[in-house]
Design a protein around this nucleic acid. Structure first.
Length: 270
DNA sequence: ATGGTAGCACGGCTA
């Protein structure tokens, strides 16, 4: 069995002990981190290498930053949303991907599985350049995903999407109307991914549990379960057939100095 | 109650 985790840690340095504790408890084979909030040189590489991980880091000063950690070696590491981030005049570190060579009994995954780990833009407030950037970045990602599906590639798209897919994924749909995470434009982009044939792994296993992944630090949101579901696994059909479980590890959100996001975990046969 | 929390980095931005 292979365990794959995605987690917005909200600073890997401020959260280092939480992440170590998590790894020692859950032993993920692959760990995608978002919002590491440091440049590559500041990433606590030795700690994670000592825990047995190959580390690929796409950092950024103060904001954003993603990392892909794997016990198995990864190949073809891609840092930056292709043909978007790197040639922008405002480069942001939100995308890191790599291939793992699982041995699978199907042809489309014979080349291995691609793990695509994203920290998608928040986009608030709306009617600002930040919102324009969110829509452009996410539009570009969806187009890239369509190309991969047209090529029948096997992949897991995971991370902090900053998209609340439906009313069921938020504690107060009315209160979130108009927010950049809950507008029709980004919900539509998420639906496009659904209609391409990608399975929302957590919702697949929990059709009648909200499965929130984020609770704001403010207003005792966690205690009152005022959460939203914005961290997702979207998987291609051949990977969907391999899934054993997918869930939110929400107890991690209650630890001292917790991130405002809980990790999500996908277990699969491989 | 025009705040409230947290991280980065040390003022104000981002979430």
């Amino acid at each position: 069995m292979v365990k794959i985790v995605s987690w917005n840690v909200n600073s890997v340095r401020a959260r280092l002990q939480n992440v170590i504790d998590f790894i020692q408890t859950y032993q993920p084979d692959i760990l995608g981190l978002q919002e590491i909030k440091c440049v590559n040189e500041q990433f606590p590489l030795d700690v994670f290498e000592d825990l047995g991980y190959n580390c690929h880091i796409f950092g950024q000063k103060s904001y954003n930053g993603v990392a892909l950690l794997s016990k198995m070696p990864m190949t073809d590491i891609q840092c930056g949303l292709p043909d978007f981030d790197l040639n922008s005049d405002n480069p942001q570190s939100r995308y890191i991907a790599g291939h793992i060579n699982f041995t699978l009994n199907n042809t489309s995954a014979s080349k291995g599985i691609e793990i695509i780990n994203c920290y998608m833009p928040n986009g608030n407030p709306v009617d600002t350049p930040k919102h324009v950037y969110k829509l452009a970045w996410t539009r570009h990602l969806v187009d890239l995903i369509r190309q991969k599906i047209d090529n029948q590639e096997a992949f897991i798209l995971m991370g902090d999407f900053n998209i609340i897919p439906t009313d069921f994924d938020v504690h107060d749909p009315d209160g979130w109307q108009g927010d950049a995470l809950f507008r029709d434009d980004v919900k539509g982009l998420y639906r496009e991914l659904n209609f391409m044939g990608l399975t929302d792994a957590i919702r697949h296993f929990y059709p009648s549990d909200p499965c929130f992944t984020f609770w704001d630090y403010q207003g005792r949101a966690r205690e009152q379960d005022k959460g939203i579901r914005i961290d997702h696994f979207l998987v291609t059909p051949d990977i969907s057939e391999m899934m054993i479980s997918a869930s939110v590890i929400d107890t991690v959100r209650d630890a001292p100095k917790a991130s405002d996001h809980a990790p999500i975990i996908l277990e699969m046969n491989a």
